[in-house]
């Protein structure tokens, strides 16, 4: 699973950080989502899916079948 967040859409409510704190956090200044782990381990996948569904801004995109952001 690979996660992308769109900071410009984020409403900074923090549901993601509440549900999957190992993967999402919020910037101190304005609460915008920050991604702690773009390719989280298996045990985080369920919480990440729940966080994605509960995000009021549709700011979280999941790519279930990818594991790495770039091939470099």
């Amino acid at each position: 699973m690979r996660i992308e967040v769109d900071e410009s859409r984020c409403f900074a409510v923090g549901n993601c950080a509440l549900i999957a704190p190992a993967v999402f956090d919020q910037r101190d200044e304005d609460g915008t989502v920050t991604l702690l782990d773009a390719t989280p381990p298996e045990r985080e996948h369920e919480p990440v899916r729940a966080a994605t569904l509960r995000c009021p801004a549709s700011a979280i995109a999941l790519h279930e079948n990818e594991t790495r952001a770039h091939d470099e």
Binding site: A12, G14, A17, Q26, R27, D28, E29, D30, G31, T32
Partner: peptide
């Protein structure tokens, strides 16, 4: 306006 307040209402 909301952006001015969100930093005060984070989970942290």
């Amino acid at each position: 306006l909301r952006r001015m307040l969100t930093g005060s209402f984070t989970t942290k």
